[in-house]
Design a protein around this nucleic acid. Structure first.
Lengths: 164, 164
DNA sequence: CGAATAATGATATATTGTAACCTTCGCCGA
DNA sequence: TCGGCGAAGGTTACAATATATCATTATTCG
């Protein structure tokens, strides 16, 4: 498993750091990840990923369709966006925020986690946490119950410190 | 906080038992809970709760609208159902399963938990776990991040042992 | 090049969720 | 008793999210 940071333990929690990736860098990482998965990095996909990555909060497929349409000067239908978002989710380039019917770019495409989203009811911004201990516990509980092919989703709705 | 079971510790996990509530019993408990919250227990609400409780898997508002319409021999519009489901959710008579856009009756209306749903991709049945340690950890993580008014949702998609 | 495959476009439709306004009915005080 | 108020539900319209199908264009690869 590739791992682009340092790992250490604080207060019983396994944590690790990610490099913060911005624009160019992130695009390249996304491209590399998609291609490694045997998929093409097309113009459409690049634009959609970029729009998603620029967006400050989870974006619905329709939001993205609008933004992409504007950027390309030509209407892009939501179903095209859905197709690509689905691909992004399965290849870990993006994640779906179930409680918001929306998507966020994964800023560390190569790095695989169950993650936790904190979504502010007020401003809509989603904060992303990784806590592998916690998600391991959730997985374990599901496994004990006899489930397989687990895909956990842990989201917390609430009010962020900015809006409080 | 009312608590209708016994509490004990196994393997570091705080667990407790619920009485299993079936038909009549559950209806009465739901009615009591709603009235204690200062809300009316109407025919419509009773029927919707009953339909939801009978349903073996999470039911969409539209599913419920159909079932209720059939039972009452008269069309009930989805928006009426939504209103009542929202009320049920806020009063803890039912829960929304975000990853399925659907609702389940709470079989212990008086008892308040963050809970974990395991939803089978195959058969659609949702298994309900309570694990207060786990949900406490999730709440804590969100709190540390500065969030307030927390409403955690923990769901695991996968395949249940029956369908495996 | 040319066939096969992958990606996207276009269109239609299904599903899920809200908004606005109206009617009914029970309750409560004058 | 009457009148009015508020809660619940009805009706209609519409918005937002998601999928299905088939046609067209682009890429890959022999």
């Amino acid at each position: 498993m590739p791992f682009d940071g340092k790992a250490f333990i604080i207060g019983g929690m396994a944590l690790h750091h990610h490099h913060e990736r911005g624009g160019e860098d992130l695009l390249k990482a996304a491209k590399a990840t998609l291609q490694k998965a045997g998929e093409q990095w097309t113009d459409m996909r690049a634009v959609i990923f970029d729009v998603l990555a620029e967006h400050s909060k989870p974006a619905s497929a329709y939001d993205i369709a609008d933004l992409v349409s504007r950027r390309r000067g030509k209407r892009v239908a939501p179903n095209s966006v859905y197709r690509i978002l689905d691909l992004f989710v399965t290849t870990n380039l993006a994640r779906r925020v179930e409680s918001a019917n929306a998507y966020v770019a994964n800023s560390h495409p190569g790095c695989l986690h169950d993650c936790i989203f904190l979504i502010c009811d007020e401003c809509g911004i989603a904060t992303h946490l990784d806590n592998d201990d916690l998600s391991a516990s959730v997985r374990e509980a599901a496994q004990v119950a006899g489930f397989v092919n687990l895909r956990p989703m842990i989201e917390v709705r609430g009010k962020c410190s900015n809006c409080d």
